[in-house]
């Protein structure tokens, strides 16, 4: 006789480690969700019973020297596969066993009359499974 127990497991595979941010027409938003942008992609394989989330604040944010105004950065994600989750910023329980494809997006927003300027922007988003 053989016995075994399968506990909660989670394997993350970063299949597309970089996203592409593009500016809106008003230059007040910089997002991977806009036309021409691209999300980062992570594959999550789980037995279920785990929670998927993003760090609410991106790390290693770099902006051009000419950008002196503050930006609100908002990571978000959506899931397809064993489970379907519409774009969200909050933690979600992965209850179904199987493989999911997680699209990770990032949006930067300026307030008031502030706008993004020419130059390179980058930030790192952490995907968490627990």
């Amino acid at each position: 006789m053989f016995n075994g127990t399968v506990g909660a497991t989670c394997a993350l595979n970063i299949t597309s480690p970089t996203g592409v941010l593009v500016p809106s027409g008003t230059l007040q938003s910089l997002s991977s969700r806009l036309s021409g942008g691209a999300a980062g992609v992570v594959t999550v394989t789980t037995t279920g019973g785990v929670t998927l989330s993003l760090e609410p604040t991106p790390s290693a944010v770099t902006v051009p020297a000419g950008d002196t105004t503050s930006t609100v950065w908002t990571p978000s994600y959506s899931v397809t596969g064993a489970q379907t989750i519409a774009n969200t910023t909050t933690a979600t329980s992965l209850t179904a066993a199987g493989t999911n494809v997680v699209s990770v997006d990032l949006t930067g927003t300026k307030t008031g009359s502030n706008t993004f300027v020419s130059g390179a922007y980058s930030a790192t988003v952490t995907v968490k499974c627990e």
């Binding site: 506990g7 909660a8 497991t9 989670c10 394997a11 993350l12 595979n13 970063i14 299949t15 597309s16 480690p17 970089t18 996203g19 592409v20 941010l21 593009v22 500016p23 027409g25 230059l27 910089l30 021409g36 594959t43 785990v50 051009p64 993004f116 300027v117 020419s118 130059g119 390179a120 922007y121 980058s122 627990e130």
Partner: peptide, 27 residues
């Protein structure tokens, strides 16, 4: 022109090989 410049500046270079991980046990 400014939009094009900004869009070009925001293009992030493709990364290297993908990385993956798992952890056992989780509870």
């Amino acid at each position: 022109s400014r939009l094009r410049q900004l869009a070009a500046a925001c293009l992030l270079l493709a990364g290297g090989p993908a990385s993956a991980q798992s952890l056992t046990p989780m509870r």
